[in-house]
């Protein structure tokens, strides 16, 4: 949906598609941190405005995520009843574990 390069050099690419089951899948790739979390926030807002039943964050190509990225995911979890993460890397998974959010942001089985 949008390729954005923000101040600080971190680059995140966000692609959104709606699969036939009605779930929105947002693929977030690159590095997500405080310098570009706002662009994901905007993309998430555009998706949640359409009230999808499920929102899946495909993080399989996300190398890094900091607490600012977590904040966006938590915000999405508050808006959509079912939010799931797809294929988070160990780095991303660790952030979620350390923040006690494994229950709020479950990993798709």
């Amino acid at each position: 949906m949008a390729g954005l390069e923000e101040d600080g050099g971190a680059e995140v690419v966000i692609d959104t598609l709606f699969d036939p089951s009605g779930a929105a899948v947002m693929s977030v790739s690159g590095d997500l941190d405080i310098s570009n979390a706002a662009s994901l926030q905007a993309a998430v807002a555009a998706v949640t405005a359409q009230s999808p039943e499920r929102l899946i964050f495909d993080l399989s190509d996300l190398r890094f995520m900091d607490s600012a990225g977590i904040a966006v995911l938590i915000g999405a979890a508050g808006e959509v009843s079912a939010v799931q993460l797809r294929g988070p890397s160990p780095v991303v998974r660790r952030v979620i574990e350390l923040t006690g959010l494994t229950g709020v942001l479950p990993i798709e089985s």
Partner: peptide
């Protein structure tokens, strides 16, 4: 310790 969700996130436990 066991960490739970941040303040401001709906907690289940």
């Amino acid at each position: 310790f066991d960490v739970n969700v941040p303040i401001g996130v709906a907690r289940k436990s």
